[in-house]
């Protein structure tokens, strides 16, 4: 059984074959691969006996269920008002300069993608961002540089 099929069948074991298994399935694929491929969505549709359009329609509603190719590390910088007030702009420019990508883009080596996101609930610690599931707060250009350097050097 392919890796994908295992992921799907594990979730089906847990949640049944009903439509409410869809979100956990989508989540677990994104957790593994950072985004959903077209083939993923077709496979899910087959397994849950729903239309592929419905899988796509649902996935496209949620900002963490990416349907476009993303890097291994997805940086989501918060653009809500308080992070913005605390200097998100400079932090964002630092990231863009370091990784040579703009918002929505992925580095050539497919390591990083850069996205803006709405409030991540760290308004008292802004500017803040997520890299995959981990959060980084009180960011400054210096601090974000340190964080990224660590990813560049020490993580694959």
């Amino acid at each position: 059984m392919s890796e994908l099929k295992t992921v799907i069948s594990d979730q089906i074991k847990k949640h049944g074959k009903g439509r409410d298994a869809l979100m956990p399935i989508l989540q677990s694929i994104v957790e593994k691969n950072n985004y959903l491929t077209n083939e993923n969505m077709v496979e899910i549709a087959k397994e849950l006996d729903i239309s592929a359009a419905d899988v796509y329609g649902t996935a496209s509603f949620y900002s963490f269920l990416e349907t476009e190719e993303r890097g291994r590390y997805v940086i989501r910088i918060c653009k809500s008002i308080t992070c913005d007030m605390k200097g998100k702009g400079k932090v964002l420019r630092t990231i863009q300069d370091m990784l040579k990508i703009k918002i929505g883009e992925t580095t050539q080596n497919k390591k990083f993608s850069l996205l803006e996101t709405n409030c991540i609930g760290l308004c008292d610690q802004g500017p803040a961002m997520l890299i995959n599931d981990d959060f980084y707060n009180h960011l400054t250009p210096e601090k974000v540089r340190e964080v990224l350097v660590d990813y560049i050097r020490n993580k694959n």
Partner: peptide, 17 residues
């Protein structure tokens, strides 16, 4: 179910797979 709704907010549209 060839048609679905995709995206949200101002990007919301009627879409195929």
């Amino acid at each position: 179910n060839a048609l679905t709704v995709s995206g949200k907010g101002k990007e919301m549209k009627i879409s195929t797979f």
